[in-house]
Amino acid sequence: MRREWLAWTTFLLVEAAMALNFLYAPNLAPGEQVHPLSQHLFYIHVGAAWNAAVAFTVVFVASIAYLRSRDLKWDLWAAASAEIGVVFTAVTLLTGTIWAKAAWGVWWTWDPKLTTTLILWFLFVAYLLIRESVTSPDTRAVYSAVLGIVAFLDVPVVFLAARWWSSIHPVVITGQGFLMPPSMVLTMVTGFVAFTFLYCYWLWHRTALARVERRLSELRARRREDI
């Protein structure tokens, strides 16, 4: 019942965010000379980036919780959140590169934010690949927790390194703060909320699926013993 509520709220919010994005928000941000359609990527980009950060923070917290409690529940939460985080990071990177090509004329720059996001994506793809290659649930949980913690702690250092590095290398674009009209702010905030609900909904779904998967493998193991 509660899941249906969450599903419907998420659905309506995502629809609302899409409608605002494509029908209401202006095609051009004030003072920007970008291809008109690329502006619409902004709302998806920001929402995905924010929730990728949320997702990886959840991985970190759940990893610590697992090492403290040894409750496999936390491992499932961490793994589910990491999967969603990788998807959101991929969306962030893809929308970002397309927008960058339209706005800055290049697909990629070594801006600190871009570099950090890319490294984050690599780290958690590795996290998922390593999970896949360990069969014992307890070993997998400990490996994942250790990786989740180390990867999360690495991020601030990566950001710092990238910022120093890009400050002595040519940067295509620097600080471009723009003031947003109310229509853009409303669209962006709705996008934020919609993406956050989407994250929660996926997380709920994914952990439920993971519990079923675990139960299935337990049943299979028992059946093998019976035979």
Partner: peptide, 18 residues
């Protein structure tokens, strides 16, 4: 792990970026 020698660089190089 299985494929451990292949997975090590995948996890290590991004961590070592700084």
């Amino acid at each position: 792990t299985k494929r451990g020698e292949f997975l090590l660089p995948l996890a290590l190089f991004p961590l070592e970026m700084p």
